[in-house]
Amino acid sequence: MTEQTLTVRFFARLREELGTEQLTMPANEEQTAGDLLAELASRGGPWAQLQGSQPVMIAINQAMVKPAAVVKAGDEVAFFPPVTGG
């Protein structure tokens, strides 16, 4: 049986400050994007900002979602600051 994992990606300021572009995490049952964010924030240091005062946007499989959205094995979850293109 293969291990159930999901991919987490970071962009822009978060990518730079966390020094991480992508990581693989175990996928748990009934886990939300918000749970994932809390788990990462508990690493401390720069990771704490994931639950800090600055808003963090979330996408699952390249579609914007709210923190209550459920994440599953094989999903690509992305965390990033509010967008500033155009």
């Binding site: 962009f11 822009a12 992305a78 990033f80 967008v83 500033t84 293109g85 155009g86």
Partner: peptide, 13 residues
């Protein structure tokens, strides 16, 4: 243009 600025995942430095 307005919606792109607030919903398309681009970031400016």
């Amino acid at each position: 243009m307005d919606a792109l600025k607030t919903s398309a995942p681009f970031w400016k430095k």
